[in-house]
Design a protein around this nucleic acid. Structure first.
Lengths: 154, 154, 154, 154
DNA sequence: TTTT
DNA sequence: TTTT
């Protein structure tokens, strides 16, 4: 049960390539950083300040594969998902915490001039028709709004 | 194709009961109005103004049934979806346009004291595990975040 | 008072130029349509369907001027605001209703190759520092996230 | 600069009281944790899993004071803001990172039976009329949607 | 037509 | 550390 809401929406640029991890069961996960900027003028000094925030984005399964295929460093994306706290053991034995954005939906905002003939096939929109995200169709397209279709236990 | 985003998020009160319509194919649709308020002080006159906006909310299939079961006039909900323009013929033969919010996700914010013994069974969260929304499970629970699982052609 | 939420977020393309209206008091309003697309595959026929929704976007005052200056037909924008129902009298004397998106925040997603030397001056981000939106500064820049700073009584 | 978006929206319960910190300049900051829940059924085992995510919420100045006054442990709130990474030195000398949600807007979702006679005075809605957030008015009311009006350099 |  |  719940009655709660946990939603993040980002538009930003990839700070690095999508790093994939594959699991035995067939699942996979992709990770990449997104930068967002905020600019304001310091009231005291009058100088303009630009601040960059980095977000750890996590995508799974089919969505991860699509991201890996169509996104690279510097690209602009819209990403929607939920905040998740992950804890891990530091080398010093202490517990560390990382906040990640687990993607539920995304849209590419950079138009890539795909070398191949791939770009003509539009994408399924998983929000509208989640069931199609289980079909083998159109992994080759510059897909948007593809929602995660599986839920690995991690 | 896309690269676009169409998202609405509302927290408000139902102005009326959920009206259901059932289709031959087995699908159904529920409609209800949600009111949101905005209050501000008129700068010229200094008087406080309250403004109410009414939103035509549309839910489908399983989600519609859950809404009908657990929501009634006056209840508070969080609703997330997309804006959709529907055109219809007025009695005078002119085309009219209505903007609707087609629900993709929702959460009840009013705790209903359910008369029966129904409320103990927690709900599937369709955002996390959309596939479960096809199971027969737990239509009896005060469900939240149930996403539409079907897409009727209207 | 309230406890309600009324939020719309759109990424889409302008279907027309920004139309400005100026008021005696010095205020102004800009209007433009934004198109969002949804693509899905009809389950029965297997054919791909693309649906376009048009949204009536309304911006005020400084934000309107910035939009007029930097946006034109075909440009892509992110727009955030609230849904507002406006009623007006049709030529037949009947009351008509229009739903508008009243902008509170926006970001340009198309990079315009501005003819002039204007683009180097970053924009105030009204969310972060609303007070700066009252300064005369930088109307010449490809501004983003500029929030409305005035509230005309209509 | 920008063309980016950094937005978080949460509905959840406070896990603790609002902790205030006051600065010499007259500014202040409030911090509190919000819990959001996600429930899903593990596909392999069929067991229902509930997951809680904790979010570090940060509010400033007038908004902080209002939160402190009207929110307490267990209360439900809607909170909207931006993700911010803060780094700090651990006791071991290593740099640690914390992700915070810096609030821009909020709405109380728990109705508090205020002991006193304070609750009749409606709140300014800073989204609609940010300028009023600089007035001395109505800190005593169960205020919602109050946006930050100052920007301390930290 | 809701709510505070 | 919250809530149902």
């Amino acid at each position: 049960m719940s009655g709660t809401l946990n939603k993040v929406m980002l538009i930003g640029h990839l700070g690095d390539e999508v790093k994939m991890h594959y699991f035995e069961g067939g699942g996979c996960i992709g990770r990449f950083p997104i930068a967002t900027n905020e600019t304001y003028t310091n009231k005291q000094t009058g100088e303009k300040v630009t601040n960059t925030d980095w977000h750890n984005v996590v995508v799974r399964n089919k969505a991860a594969e699509i991201c890996e295929k169509y996104l690279s460093k510097g690209d602009k994306v819209y990403v929607e998902g939920r905040l998740k706290n992950r804890q891990w053991q530091g080398e010093d034995g202490n517990t560390r915490y990382t906040t990640e954005v687990h993607v539920q939906d995304f849209t590419f905002l950079t138009t890539k001039n795909e070398g191949g003939a791939s770009a003509q096939q539009p994408s399924p929109n998983a929000n509208v028709q989640p069931s199609t995200s289980n079909t083998p169709a159109s992994p080759a397209a510059p897909v948007q709004n593809v929602e995660e279709d599986d839920d690995l236990p991690f």
